[in-house]
Amino acid sequence: MDIIACIKRVPQTAEADVKIDSSGKDIVKDRLQFDMNESDTYALEEAILLKEKFSGSLTVISVGTFDAEDTLRIALAKGADNAIRIKAEDFGELDGYKTAQLLKAVIKDLKHDAIFTGCIATDDYYSQVGVTLAELLGMPHASLVTKIEIDGNTVHAYRELEGGLLEHLAMSLPALFTIQTGINEPRYASLIAIRRAAKKEIKVIGKEEINAEDIVSFSSLEKLFTPPVGERAEILSGTLDEIGTRVQGIVKEKGLL
């Protein structure tokens, strides 16, 4: 079985101080850490598990700048056979639709029985690239998948809906799955594997190979701004003991116990 996994390198912003840069359209990146997008680690793991079970090849693809090659190498170290970087720097501002078209331009020429993507990128929060890509390639998809079982020619895909309800679908391959976190236990790459992956070749594809004129975007970023805050929490300050006493007062006063 030939499998493709799409992975993105994203800044880790959940615990960081996120500042807007002078262009007003991007964030200050020099003090941020970058890593594989969270749901992509699960998508990659699912792809590796499938490859291990049915044998075949696994290709990982990322649309990104040079740094994205670090993330692709992690994927190679974990078990991917080939890695491709589509040069983001060649194609200007990217929205989800444009990203999906770039991925399609490369994937359409590769053999694939199944494609895995994450369900959402934590930087742009689009949650659209996987489903868009499936449509552009003319293949069926299931999004927000938390369980996959293959039974002969039928794939049982379980989508996670609100409230934890699962939608059980019977599908056939080829198909694209956008993977939700928690579906498996993503492995770590061993140090030896990481060292070996450092020497592997990453195929780089740019505007010479993909005709940028055919690739359009549906949207453009106007500006970033700090979210307007309504009523923010009252921040309890002072020593830990003073804070504790305040909380004690609050629970007493409100009769919370």
């Binding site: 912003t13 996120v18 964030i27 934590t122 970023l221 106007e222 970033l224 701004f225 979210p227 307007p228």
Partner: peptide, 10 residues
Amino acid sequence: VYDGKLDAHV
């Protein structure tokens, strides 16, 4: 965007 830290006009 960015884990809810910023908003964007698109």
